[in-house]
Design a protein around this nucleic acid. Structure first.
Lengths: 139, 139
DNA sequence: GCTTGACCTGTGTCCAAGACACAGGTGTAG
DNA sequence: CTACACCTGTGTCTTGGACACAGGTCAAGC
């Protein structure tokens, strides 16, 4: 299979496949005549797995470890459980950060509606940003 | 001021300051004797502004534009309002994505608690990941 | 057979926002 | 004077692809 054929039914892009190939998760053979990379059924299978794992929040590096473990014939399951737990923690952190940022942004936009535009002064670049108090709107 | 002195009261790191310097937001002068970068009061002021803007979700590039506008003596306020509106949209998107991911992860962890570890087979690398149905737990 | 044009390919580079490694400089306590 | 802790600039690395580019492929038309 050529990269575009491999990509066809899976919901992903050629660039993504090429990236996975570059980091060694997929191992196509190079055509003698073309120079084109030829993917086999195992690659298709691995790709499907990679995409599933990515959707669950595993990093590409995580997936590499998991595949390596599985290639030895061992269960990757314990590793998978541990990693996902860790990734969940990180996602929780990102979630909280994003939540807080979103609140700050909305709060700023609201607060700015009653404020005029001003030219910068010697010690004030933008009074909107510098005058915004992140904790406003709290009480 | 040396970089560590500049950093001291602001809540940031030398690496961050060096980065802002590298991209041209700060303009220290190079000491003849040391080679050390010497930051002035204006740099301190700009840094404070940059950090405030970063905390509100502006990208470093955004801030560059805003500073450029302000350097002409014009109001950067309209620009600031427009940019923040756009960044809020993006943050909203990230927020939704992260929220959904978090749910998927938690759902997977829950679902996996009753499942055993299994060795990989010819067409199953990890039955936990491959067997996880993202829409499970919905009905 | 030949050519045109649409699409496809691999390779190389680029992105954000710093973090990290490293070799060397500085400053001070003894 | 030396030992040692800390500080500095420069250069490279990170994630997960996206994008640019020059060239190759393939079917339609003449």
């Amino acid at each position: 299979m050529k990269v575009s054929e491999l990509v066809k039914e899976m919901k992903t892009t050629p660039d993504t496949v090429r990236y996975y190939t570059r980091v060694g998760l997929l191992s196509p053979v190079k055509s003698e005549t073309n120079g084109y990379k030829h993917y086999g059924v195992d690659d298709q299978h691995r790709l499907r797995f990679i995409l599933s794992a990515r959707k669950l929040g595993f990093s590409v590096n995580d997936i590499d470890q998991i595949l390596t473990e599985a290639a030895k014939g061992k269960t990757a399951c314990p590793l998978v459980r541990v990693i996902l737990e860790k990734r969940l923690e990180e996602t929780e952190e990102v979630f909280q950060q994003t939540l807080a940022l979103r609140i700050r942004m909305k709060s700023a936009i609201g607060e700015w509606q009653t404020k005029p535009n001003k030219a910068p002064t010697g010690h004030m670049i933008c009074h909107l940003i510098e005058g915004f108090n992140a904790s406003s709107g709290k009480e």
